[in-house]
Amino acid sequence: MAELTYRDAVARGIAQEMERDSNVVFLGEDVARAGGVFKATVGLVDRFGPLRVRDTPISEQAILGAAMGAAMTGLRPIAEIMFADFAAVCFDYIANEFPKLRYMTNGQLGCPLVVRTGNGGGARFGAQHSQSIENWTMMIPGLKVVAPSSPVDVVGLMAAAVRDDNPVIFHEHKSLYATKSEVPDGEIVDTLGTAKILRPGRDATILALALMVPRALAAAETLASEHGIDCEVIDVRSLVPLDTQTILNSVARTGRLFTVEENPRLCGWGAEIASIVADEAFWDLDGPIVRITTPHIPLPAADHLEDLALPSAPRIVERIARVMNGARR
């Protein structure tokens, strides 16, 4: 057991899988010699060589297209899209090619690959390098979508993603790269499609993803100590497959549901979950489902403005306390 940063967990997860299976290859911009612009893949090229860990030109379509061609003929590629925002440059592969291949060919071909993205805000990069795009990928049938919040989940979910026979979009959060926690030694393999209850509670359920997870946990502590509200915090982790049972069971216990989403308001992942809970657990609810999200705006670069935009622990506390104390919204 040792402390590991989220950043180093990325390299450890990839290395664990490359060590196990020589068909696992890794490509992206500045990922090999430079070790990645976020330094999340340092050392991989030295360990596995330049034929398995390959620097590419700034060609997002070629990166994802090549990953797909390799995946459908026997390799298990991991491709990096440096900033998640750049997914828009190569969205054809994410929306039209990877997820439809198996269906359109009636199962003749599959696309077992992982696309890593540097997702999310908080780094003062402005509107085109800060977006949370998990909902862009969640909406497409045929993809799997995960977004880990801790180093141990990075390692375990990376392993699960690489071993999965489907295209998996793996959203790493840029503002979590420097965070640290204990990670067990040895091989770690997690399961896609499983949410984790990080803090049990009786009064309300809070769902969060990636950077919103530590904020939701901090908010839950304050809500308990200052407002006497005992919140259960669930790290959703995997948007597709979605662990609805963990969520529905929690709502059955607490009777209240809050989502904390970094994505802009419209069509955020919480909207889909709110719809499922309203359909299937309406009579378990003691009050309205409330979504706490980034407002429906592009993200500003200025630090004080960006901090106002993204859900913060104090904002989560304020909103939940107000709603739980009887306010309509």
Partner: peptide, 16 residues
Amino acid sequence: AHLPIACGAAWRAQYL
């Protein structure tokens, strides 16, 4: 779309 995909299949042949 399939030009990069063909490159990927060729990369697999080269790698293996």
